[in-house]
């Protein structure tokens, strides 16, 4: 595995077919491209909802980070788990969620993944192993370690990918979790999406090490830094970490250097970074890059990509229609699900 700094990597690198592509397979690569487009269009549509006053509450967009979510989840199956973050739409779609139920959640409808109780920041899909986005920075990391403890104890063979941002690497939960997972050799992929800013504070102004991956040494686990805008680099690191975890080798810390081209949330006025910086990262867009690469490799031609994008547009349109036609939750059900009803409780 190569440790590449995002800023050093060339924007287009198609000279050689990455070895990991043989493992993902042509179908898997096209599906990865489809999911990246689906994430992008989901978030652009969500943003449009907000602009047109159709949505409520806040949201955190991961536009520009799609290769990280999809690259990591390429190494996971349905029985593997993820824990996600407030910026979690990408993880959710990458793990196989339906955009219709996501839009419905976003609009606070009864048909949403959380029946409208959670909103954008809490979308979860336990049936697909997604234990949920999380409103607390670092909140999902120890939960991932617990899910890995279950996998080990129950011998399910599952691994757990815990997504978190660079901001979370200074939370106590991060450090306690890495120590416990390494100590108990648990099957966890700690995936840091280093998008350079914790809200407004630049990584170098918040973190005493040069790379989040440097933290791994303190917990006796491998730490790698990859270009998070390069699907191949992310997938290669994720497969290697997942293989190691499944072998009983314990956790790995994978740092994906990437960038969110949108603001932190709706309130962001981008006072902490320059337009030039944003434009430079937009030029390294992970989706355009992956699409060009697959075209150059003959995995997905321009025509394939065009029809894939059309299919994504239909999926988005259908999802929006489903969500908008869905009912709001009944206020009579305000108290539902505070506790598990006795009849539904597993015993």
């Amino acid at each position: 595995m190569t440790a590449a700094r995002a800023e050093d990597a060339p924007p287009v690198a198609v000279a050689n077919r990455p070895a990991i592509y043989d493992r993902v397979g042509a179908g898997g690569l096209r599906e990865a491209l489809r999911r990246m487009h689906l994430i992008r269009r989901f978030e652009e549509t969500a943003e449009d909802f907000y602009v047109r006053g159709k949505s409520y509450g806040t949201m955190h967009l991961s536009i520009g980070q799609e290769a990280t979510a999809v690259g990591v989840c390429a190494a996971l199956g349905d029985s593997d788990y993820v824990t996600s973050t407030h910026r979690g739409h990408g993880h959710c779609i990458a793990k196989g969620a339906e955009v219709g139920r996501m839009f419905a959640e976003f609009l606070g409808r009864e048909t949403g993944y959380c029946r409208g109780r959670g909103g954008s920041m809490h979308i979860a899909d336990p049936a697909k192993g997604n234990l949920g986005a999380n409103g607390i920075v670092g909140g999902g990391i120890p939960i991932a370690v617990g899910a890995a403890l279950s996998a080990k104890r129950l011998r399910t063979g599952a691994v757990v990918a815990s997504f978190f941002g660079d901001g979370a690497n200074n939370e106590g939960a991060f450090h306690e979790s890495l120590n416990i997972a390494s100590l108990w050799k648990l099957p966890v992929l700690f995936v840091c999406e280093n998008n350079q800013y914790g809200m407004s504070v630049a990584f170098a102004r918040s973190t005493a090490v040069a790379s989040v991956a440097d933290r791994a040494a303190a917990y006796s686990m491998p730490g790698v830094t990859v270009d998070g805008n390069d699907f191949a680099a992310v997938a290669a690191a994720a497969f290697e970490a997942a293989d190691r975890a499944r072998r009983g080798g314990g956790p790995t810390l994978v740092e994906c250097k990437t960038y969110r081209t949108r603001g932190h949330s709706r309130s962001d006025r981008n006072r902490y970074r320059t337009k030039d910086e944003i434009e430079a990262w937009k030029a390294r867009d992970p989706i355009e890059r992956f699409e060009r690469e697959l075209s150059a490799l003959g995995v997905a031609t321009a025509a394939d990509a065009a029809s894939l994008r059309e299919a994504v547009e239909r999926e988005i349109a259908d999802g929006v229609a489903f969500a908008e036609a869905s009912p709001a939750p009944s206020t009579a059900e305000l108290m539902r699900d505070v506790h598990t009803p006795a009849a539904a409780a597993p015993r």
Partner: peptide
Amino acid sequence: RYMLGGSV
């Protein structure tokens, strides 16, 4: 449980 709409 509540936040996830009763799915866990």
